[in-house]
């Protein structure tokens, strides 16, 4: 019994642990850092001054009226916690969900007096990760009147920038068309300058 099963089990445990638990991830890391170093390290992006301002793949909070704002986030206590990902996990009969959306709707309506009446759903729903770096083109366009007013430029200048930033579906049929919020905001700053921080901020 011991010789037939237990000893092989112990030796197989050790062998597989060293190969798949240690050697395999080490090999993958080595190859990844050589082949795709920027991706492997987290797809960090820098502004024109060379400061790392975040990861292209990770949503960050934007409160200023002059920036495109991301989806609400349930990651961490305050949202957008890239060290504590997660969704709200609230279902279709949840009062908490309804109340939260209602509050977001009235805030967005106040902040965006010139926007279309119907708010695109992404702007009031949290994503699965809480770190969704994208918005649909419609949800970005919905915010253009506010951004144009805050930056005191004509809306169609921003419109054109947004159109440039739309990523289509992968291979033409996978996923949904989307705009990366951080990259768009960096492009906005590049085109129109950094917004002046509102007083008291």
């Amino acid at each position: 019994m011991i010789r037939e099963h237990v000893l092989p089990a112990a030796r197989a445990t050790l062998c597989t642990l060293l190969i798949t638990g240690v050697a395999y991830p080490l090999l993958c890391t080595g190859l990844a850092l050589v082949l795709f170093p920027q991706r492997a390290r987290g797809s960090f992006v820098t502004d024109d001054a060379g400061h790392t301002v975040g990861s292209e793949l990770i949503a960050q909070p934007f409160a200023s009226a002059a920036y495109v704002q991301p989806r609400p986030s349930a990651a961490g206590d305050k949202g957008w916690d890239a060290n504590n990902s997660g969704g709200s996990n609230l279902g279709a009969t949840s009062k908490k969900l309804r109340d939260r959306v209602q509050a977001d709707v009235s805030r967005l309506k106040t902040e965006n007096p010139d926007a279309l009446a119907e708010i695109p759903a992404e702007l009031v729903t949290t994503s699965g990760s809480g770190l969704d770096p994208h918005l649909s083109p419609a949800a970005v366009r919905w915010q253009i009147p506010r951004i144009a007013r805050a930056r005191q430029v004509a809306p169609d200048r921003i419109e054109r920038l947004v159109a440039d930033q739309i990523e289509g579906r992968d291979l033409g049929f996978l996923g949904e068309p989307r705009v990366n919020v951080l990259l768009l905001n960096l492009a906005l700053d590049r085109l129109l300058g950094k917004p002046v921080a509102p007083p008291g901020k």
């Binding site: 989806r71 969704g87 709200s88 996990n89 609230l90 279709a92 969900l97 309804r98 959306v101 209602q102 709707v105 309506k109 009446a117 119907e118 708010i119 695109p120 759903a121 992404e122 009031v124 729903t125 949290t126 994503s127 699965g128 990760s129 969704d132 994208h134 918005l135 649909s136 419609a138 996923g175 949904e176 989307r178």
Partner: peptide, 17 residues
């Protein structure tokens, strides 16, 4: 609540998918 849900139920879903 005045939300455009033409893309379906997006609570808990990622835009890219």
């Amino acid at each position: 609540l005045g939300v455009d849900q033409s893309m379906g139920n997006l609570e808990g879903k990622e835009c890219r998918f």
